[in-house]
């Protein structure tokens, strides 16, 4: 199994982004997804800047994929999307059918927000050039098994195994709203929240993370304990989501686990995880796993 680093969900200053990916070049991930996937107003890095990072990572031996926006409304956003699709060097990850159309049957990755719930949809995307699909967040191992049995030949399967899951997208900005600012005068407040803003119930339970127009799961998904099942289901790629701190250690743990080493826990103390979707339950649930031999 390969490891991939999914697209950066948060808004970081350009220098921090460059520094982060300089480190990624040294990490044991085979595939890196680059680019802005949440908000078109986040322009710390232009396409040219992302392409520079892409070149640097390619030289370091990584497969680079340019990921794209999930919510596309304005003509300017469609024009940017078209430039990405026509970059000529790197594969693109589509998160909206607009991207699938603009790809014009060139090889692409069908991202997790394309709503692929069955093999018939996978076949449609394959016929339009998809060489890989990323399972939607809310699907279970059981559904994955059913889809894998019917998966179009030659299509790779990637599963989101670690990080706060992107759960919803809106035309409104919840970070701006939390600061009582209109979206068009957001003052780029997302820059102040490299991990997003926690959204808690009135009983202080952290249920979501506010990240601009996106909401993420309050708990981080963690499928480290599911390595055998992921293998059995012939998953080709495990996706981990970038975070401001500690992701290197998490990647090392997954790297060890895919090599067959027994890694019972992630090296992040005090964190709570969830894996409910994988087990066919509410996403926030943590189904504890009996390790073989324990």
């Amino acid at each position: 199994m390969k490891l991939s680093l999914g697209p950066l969900q948060y808004f970081w200053p350009a220098d921090k982004v460059r520094e982060f990916y300089r480190q990624v070049a040294e990490w044991p991930v085979e595939i890196v997804y680059l680019g802005e996937v949440v908000c078109a107003k986040r322009r710390e890095l232009k396409l040219q800047d992302w392409l520079q990072i892409a070149d640097m990572l390619t030289e370091a031996g990584k497969e680079v994929v340019l990921s794209t926006l999930t919510l596309l409304e304005a003509e300017s956003e469609l024009a940017s999307l078209q430039r990405i699709c026509e970059n000529g060097d790197f594969k693109v990850e589509a998160n909206d059918m607009a991207c699938v159309r603009l790809i014009c049957a060139r090889p692409f990755v069908a991202g997790p927000h394309l709503n692929m719930y069955n093999a018939s949809t996978l076949q449609l995307l394959k016929d339009n050039g998809a060489i890989r699909w990323v399972m939607p967040m809310e699907l279970s191992a059981a559904t994955l098994a059913d889809i894998q049995a019917e998966r179009p030949q030659g299509m790779e399967t990637e599963v989101f195994v670690y990080g706060h899951m992107p759960l919803s997208f809106s035309a409104r900005c919840f970070t701006a709203r939390a600061h009582n600012l209109p979206k068009d005068q957001c003052q780029f407040r997302c820059l102040d929240y490299p991990h997003g803003m926690p959204l808690q119930t009135q009983e202080d339970e952290e249920i979501f993370i506010v990240n601009g127009i996106q909401l993420q799961s309050g708990l981080s998904c963690n499928l480290l304990g599911e390595m055998d099942k992921l293998n059995e289901l012939k998953v080709d790629i495990l996706r981990l989501s970038p975070q401001a701190e500690g992701i290197k250690e998490v990647i090392d743990a997954f790297d060890a686990a895919r090599k067959g080493e027994q890694v019972a826990e992630l090296p992040l103390a005090g964190q709570q995880w969830c894996n409910g979707y994988w087990h066919g339950e509410a996403g926030m649930v943590n189904v504890s796993k009996q390790f073989a031999g324990n």
Binding site: T70, L71, H113, N115, P136, M137, E138, M165, L167, S168, F169, S170, A171, I207, F208, L215, S217, G276, Y277, G280, E281, A282, G283, M284, V285
Partner: peptide, 14 residues
């Protein structure tokens, strides 16, 4: 939310 792109409900309730 963008309809069809919201899994908040399944995250909390399944």
């Amino acid at each position: 939310m963008v309809e069809g792109r919201c899994a908040l409900s399944s995250y909390i309730t399944g």
